[in-house]
């Protein structure tokens, strides 16, 4: 069995030491620092990208908030304006109605007065006419002359009673 040939041990050990020490230095000085650098670069890059993404997210959120705020403000303003306009319109309407009511009331009052005046006038002229008619009728029927005062008295009594 070649493994048990002790004469080969020395050269194997000598070259194991030489090659392994060589490998150790190649690894620790060249290969491993390079891989490490690649890995750290990647890690840093990923971390940086994540931080950047988070920053963008924060910015977007802030923009959204600002937008919401502006929107709410605008809405409130619009509502206020609308309410004001409505109030003004209502007030105007009320004023106009009141004015119109007053005007109408005045007009109807005036008309009523006129009607009353016309009625009294008409009533008084009716009385005169009635008295004349009564005087004339009594004269025609009875042939006796009736004084105007008596006729007036009779008409008044009739008018009062007829009522």
């Amino acid at each position: 069995m070649p493994q048990m040939d002790f004469t080969t041990y020395a050269p194997q050990l000598v070259w194991l030491v030489i090659t392994f020490v060589l490998l150790y230095f190649l690894m620790s000085r060249m290969a491993l620092p390079r891989i490490e650098r690649i890995l750290t670069t990647r890690e840093n890059r990923i971390e940086g990208d994540l931080a950047e993404a988070a920053e963008f997210g924060r910015k977007a959120e802030a923009a959204q908030k600002a937008f919401d705020k502006v929107q709410a403000e605008t809405r409130a303003k619009a509502q206020k304006l609308a309410a004001e306009a409505r109030e003004r319109a209502n007030a105007e309407q009320a004023a106009r109605t009141a004015k119109l009511d007053a005007q109408l009331a005045e007009q109807s009052k005036k008309a009523e007065g006129e009607i009353n005046a016309a009625r009294t006038k008409a009533m008084s002229s009716l009385r005169d006419v009635a008295i004349d008619i009564a005087q004339a009728a009594a004269e025609r029927v009875t042939g006796a002359t009736v004084s105007k005062d008596a006729a007036a008295k009779a008409v008044d009594a009739e008018l009062k009673g007829g009522k």
Binding site: T8, P11, Q12, V14, W15, T19, L26, A31
Partner: peptide, 27 residues
């Protein structure tokens, strides 16, 4: 100490060269 270059030494050296080449080429 007997330090002859044997086939064992050759394959040790090949391993070292292959490892180094692999890692350096890969990166």
């Amino acid at each position: 100490i007997d330090a002859d270059f044997t086939n064992s030494a050759l394959f040790m050296l090949i391993s070292v060269v292959a490892i180094t080449w692999f890692l350096m080429a890969a990166t």
